[in-house]
């Protein structure tokens, strides 16, 4: 029978690509037997990137560890929406202690497992950007520096969402939050020096650091998989759009996440022992405007008189990333 060419009309997703792959290469999410570590029924908003990211990451980690996984969670949206007493969405042993101590709690769990001779059980700590880059930063750095056997995952939605969208040190310049209102001479968040926690993690020369996006499931799962093959301190920073805080449409979560990557604002890379070993080249480059325009937190930059200067400054950040992380397609 002659080969018949098939046309794919679906663009902008990797779904079709997944189906064409050999089964062993398909995503964990595509597998009917995925664990749904964070099960349905939780209270996240529609289109919540953090809920998506957490399920992606933990299902992958569960598969990688043959379901031998314990998670420690910082206070934040993920914790609140997943465990309204007496319900829980967690299908894995899971613990929440405080906002700023997830990394230390995980260290304690890992230490207990070690003395108990249960080293097949692996430990994940997870928190939002606030719980990671701000209040939990000392505990995180301590865990890194001791090279404790913990994978820490930061779900970065670029603000304190659980308390109503206040600025964190991960909030991007110009973004409107409840504490950086779109008012005054310089509306939105100020242009500070930035705080790139993946790079800071690398400065600890821990065995593995990666950034990931909910828009690139294959890449995200591969990074979690790789992290689980390594012992010692590991860090994955996942970009997770928050429709409520960003003022984006719930159905646009993946689109927004993808544009963050394609614009160069959120570079995807991985590093081992402090050296970058791979970065994801951009198949197609998007202007930052395309990303910003989908989000009401940046709406003060547009409208009748667009704030060209500020947009240009944000574009410059993206361009610098593209150069620094070698994102230009070959």
């Amino acid at each position: 029978m002659p080969l018949q060419p098939i046309k794919f009309y679906q663009t902008g997703t990797f779904t079709v690509g997944n189906r064409l792959l050999d089964e062993s290469q398909r995503t964990v999410q595509a597998n009917m037997r995925r664990t749904n570590s964070l099960n349905s029924g939780h209270r996240a908003c529609q289109g919540c990137g953090e809920a998506l990211g957490a399920r992606y990451a933990l299902d992958a980690a569960m598969q990688a560890t043959k379901n031998r996984l314990i998670a420690a969670n910082a206070t934040g949206c993920l914790e609140v929406f997943s465990t309204p007493y007496p319900e829980t969405s967690w299908q894995i042993p899971w613990m929440h202690s405080l906002f700023g101590n997830a990394a230390s709690v995980a260290t304690g769990i890992a230490a207990a497992l070690k003395v108990k001779g249960k080293q097949d059980v692996r430990v994940i700590a997870q928190g939002g950007d606030g719980g990671t880059t701000d209040i939990g930063f000392a505990c995180l750095s301590g865990m890194f520096e001791r090279n404790d056997d913990v994978l820490y995952i930061c779900y970065d939605n670029e603000a304190y969402m659980n308390t109503g969208v206040q600025r964190s040190s991960a909030t991007p310049p110009a973004a409107r939050t409840a504490t950086t209102p779109a008012a005054g001479a310089h509306p939105g968040n100020s242009f500070g020096t930035g705080k790139n926690v993946p790079l800071i993690a690398m400065a600890h020369r821990i065995p593995f650091v990666a950034t990931a996006s909910v828009a690139n499931l294959h890449d995200l799962e591969a990074k979690v998989n790789k992290a689980m093959t390594i012992h010692g301190a590991r860090y994955i920073h996942i970009h997770v759009p928050c429709p409520l805080g960003w003022g984006s449409h719930p159905s646009d979560t993946l689109k927004v996440a993808r544009l963050a990557v394609e614009s160069g604002l959120f570079p995807l890379f991985e590093a081992e022992h402090g050296e970058i070993t791979a970065s994801l080249r951009l198949r197609k480059k998007a202007p930052v405007e395309a990303y910003l325009k989908l989000q009401r937190r940046f709406s003060h930059l547009f409208g009748e008189k667009p704030d060209r200067d500020t947009i240009a400054m944000i574009q410059a950040i993206a361009d610098r990333n593209i150069e620094k992380f070698g994102l230009e397609s070959p």
Binding site: S104, V105, T107, G108, I109, A112, G142
Partner: peptide
């Protein structure tokens, strides 16, 4: 803060 947090995790893990 980390000291007691480590103890919390360790205790919860038995």
């Amino acid at each position: 803060f980390a000291a007691l947090s480590v103890a919390i995790g360790a205790s919860a893990a038995g």
